[in-house]
Amino acid sequence: MQLVVNIAVLASIYALISCGYVLIYRVSRVLSLAHGELMMLGAYGLVTTASLFAAQPGVAVAAAGLLAAATGALVYWVLMRRMTGEAVLAAVLATIALGILLRGAMVLIWSAQVQHPARMLGFDNPVVALPGGARLSTISLLLVGMNALVYLALWWFLTRTRYGIAMRAAGQNPRLAAQRGINLHAVYALAWGIAVFTGGLTGILIACDAGLDATMATIGLKAFPAALVGGLDSLVGALCGAVIVATAEVLLIHYVDPLLSDVVPFLVLTAMLIVRPWGLFGSREELDRV
């Protein structure tokens, strides 16, 4: 039972992170390899807002979320906008460079020490006992709930609202979208904003649960195979990919070797790339597109 709970929590983490990868990829065909760092930045944003609004935890979290969304839009506006029209590869390398820049900058600003934003805000994180004898922390439970909420919201946004439909349209055929009056830069910036927002949210929750230091970016990188296993252009795929990767990881760590933790997602990914490179739900044409 505990294993199932562990899988659910880990899958939620991976799913929450990989929806950012998928969103940016679907809309702008760019793979953001800085996603782990951006997520970490969101969590550090909470450290800062927590020290500003220590008395009002709600305000601090909301401000951190807004900050993350603004950061995403800013990243597009300042950096990625210049990479449109360049080869996809250059754009991906730019995100890698951005990741490195952020890593250094974050250590400079917030030091390399482990931070506990939850403690700063006075949250306690009691353990919840579930029927069946499994236990998990409150924030882990929140993570699972948040995951469901984010996916539902994204689904609603992308299929039911005008801007969401415009976003899908821009991802499919940017030229036609622009000719239909859609402002591509605004759509891309919005996608980056949402992606970094969800990433930042994940980062905030993980930081509240387990503390925050420079290793968080690794989680971002590990979530990336989940997005690929599902197929980079599909949100449903990201969800399934996250479940598959998380299941494999939890089971292998439990039954085989704890050292495997970092490598399991990539093993799953390699297997996937050999069998069905375009992912579970991805479209085959994607392979030729990039």
Partner: peptide, 23 residues
């Protein structure tokens, strides 16, 4: 004490500058 971090940040920045301005 922060040389390591500065290094990272500066390296990322230089990489970005080259990608954007001097491909």
């Amino acid at each position: 004490n922060a040389v390591f971090a500065i290094n990272y940040a500066a390296f990322g920045l230089v990489m970005i500058l080259f990608l954007v301005f001097e491909p």
